[in-house]
Each structure stands twice: as structure tokens, then as C-alpha cells.
Design a protein around this nucleic acid. Structure first.
Length: 273
DNA sequence: ACGCATACCTGAGTGC
DNA sequence: TGCACTCAGGTATGCG
């Protein structure tokens, strides 16, 4: 389940391989992988042949690949997507044959991810204009914290809402809330700008640590462009640790259903209210 | 505007 | 051993 740090590791790993490389041929092995390209797999493949890669970019969990000419290639890894240089995978969905003989492989076991072509050459493609800037793009978090600290929505719902702030998924949301000693159900307005700012700073800190460690390998599906798993130097505090002791106070971590998934928290450090 | 549910997907894990 | 079932979750969509 790649979130912002893992996607950034992929982007940074691909950049030196792709910059200046020209696509010779595109092979779509699984049409579902390009379902968001409404003109179809054949158009997708034909439109990309002959294009030369510029610097890959990212916002939140979305990647896009601008070219020297024409609209950018958009990509989302979904739950299990991988972008591999010269990789082998039983779940290869799209293969890009490049002019130096190497291959870019989009593999995706669960096929929640996908690739498609942007409609224009806007700096940030229109297709992802609804995605908010992420915590690595925003220099000053205070205005965002002020905007978020209103209304009665649960703070975790806001963190996961990619139109509010992007890049945070279930794992880093729980890790950030633990670091900020905040209950995931706390209504936004009860945190105040100060409390919300603390949560955002915690999220940025946790993700920055993960990024510097090369991403979190919470399961075998996440690998970088060379096919290597991530390594999270700082161990996870709460995610997946139901029943195990809180690293601050030793209380047993609890797991609770929220938004159709699991939330993990320390019942003592992150009490309600 | 918000909250909630559902669809999409497959491999791993669990229980019988 | 095998079968049925549950779980994992990011995004888009639709309903109340």
C-alpha cells in the first residue's frame, strides 16, 4: 500500500533511468491497467511510442511523466502497483520498451492502480487538479491547519481526504495521530489550529523519516524501481500492532473499525476528547 | 457539504 | 488436504 514516501522513492529511483529515454514500443498486457485512458489500450500504446521522457513528477500518491512533447503519462500505484526498471513480475500489466534496450514495467497484483494519458501539458495535469498539494510541497502549514481546524469531521477523515491534503494513507495517518497524541475521531474544530498543526507536522515528520529510509516495507508488494523492499528505520508505532505495548506508555494498542478499514491507536495516549 | 456504503481486485490467512 | 470465507485498502461514485 504505497503512500507518499513510497511513491516518492519510486519516482526518484525512476528519474535517472527515464530522463532522456525514448519509448520504442508500449505493450498493454492487461487492459484494466489503462481503464482510465478512455480512448482505449491501443490509443494509449500508439500515443506513447516515440516520446522522450522528461523529469518524472509527483503529487501525493500520483505520479506523472512529462515528455519533451505531448501530454504527460499519469500513473497511480493503487494498492499493489510497482514500477520496475528491467523487472520481472507475474503481474506485469504494461511494458514500455525503451531505446537503450531497457524496459519500464508496470506491475500490479490487485489492479487498483493504473496509467493513462493527460489531456494537455499543464504543469499539474488537469486529471489530478482535484488532488490537494501534499505535505512536502507546502512550506507553511499554518494556513492549511487553520482551514482544517473547522467543522465536525473526524481528524483522520480529513487526513485521508486527498482533496484536503494529499499523500497520506491509512498507515501514516495512524502513525501521525499517535505521534501527535490525538484520537482519530476527534472532531476537527476541537483540535484548534494549534492541535491541527501538530498533527500535520507529525504526519510530515513520520513521512520524512520513512522517505529517508527508502520507504516502509509493510508488505512484500511494495518495492522500489530496482525491485527492492523498503526499510523503515523507525519502527511503526501503532499500525498492525494490536495488543502490543505502546512505545510511550506500554498500554495495549487497540484496533477499531473506521471508514471501512482498521484504525490503530493507544487507548491511553490517544484517549477520546 | 457531509457521511456512509459499495465496487473494483487477488493473494494471504483462517476456520472447519 | 481442500474448500469457503474474511481481510487488506485508494479511489471513484452514488445515495440519503
Amino acid at each position: 500500500m504505497p503512500e507518499l514516501p513510497e511513491v516518492e522513492v519510486v519516482r526518484a529511483g525512476l528519474a535517472p533511468h527515464l530522463l532522456g529515454r525514448t519509448i520504442k514500443q508500449v505493450r498493454v498486457l492487461h487492459p484494466r491497467a489503462v481503464r482510465r485512458h478512455l480512448l482505449g489500450a491501443e490509443d494509449f500504446a500508439n500515443a506513447l511510442a516515440g516520446r522522450t521522457f522528461a523529469e518524472p513528477r509527483r503529487r501525493g500518491k500520483y505520479l506523472w511523466f512529462p515528455f519533451e512533447q505531448g501530454p504527460a503519462l499519469l500513473a497511480h500505484l493503487g494498492m499493489s502497483g510497482q514500477l520496475l526498471v528491467d523487472g520481472e513480475s507475474p503481474h506485469a500489466r504494461v511494458i514500455f520498451d525503451l531505446d537503450d534496450g531497457s524496459r519500464l514495467v508496470f506491475a500490479d497484483q490487485r489492479t487498483f492502480g493504473g496509467m493513462w494519458l493527460a489531456s494537455g501539458r499543464a504543469p499539474v495535469p488537469e486529471e489530478i487538479s482535484h488532488i490537494a498539494p501534499d505535505l512536502f510541497e507546502i512550506a507553511d502549514l499554518e494556513p492549511l491547519a487553520a482551514r482544517m481546524a473547522t467543522g465536525g469531521r473526524a481528524v483522520k477523515r480529513l487526513l485521508l481526504d486527498q482533496t484536503v491534503v494529499s499523500g497520506i494513507g491509512n498507515i501514516y495517518a495512524d502513525e501521525a495521530l499517535w505521534l501527535a497524541k490525538t484520537h482519530y475521531l476527534a472532531p476537527a474544530e476541537t483540535l484548534g489550529q494549534t492541535g491541527m498543526l501538530a498533527v500535520l507536522r507529525a504526519a510530515r515528520e513520520v513521512m520524512a523519516q520513512a522517505l529517508s529510509a527508502g520507504g516502509t516495507s509493510f508488505d512484500a508488494l511494495y518495492v522500489n524501481a530496482a525491485g527492492e523492499p523498503g526499510y523503515f528505520g523507525r519502527e511503526l508505532a501503532v499500525y498492525g500492532r494490536e495488543g502490543q505495548p505502546c512505545r510511550r506508555c506500554a498500554a495495549a494498542i487497540v484496533r477499531e473499525p473506521f471508514m471501512g478499514r482498521s484504525s490503530f491507536r493507544c487507548p491511553s495516549c490517544q484517549a477520546i476528547g
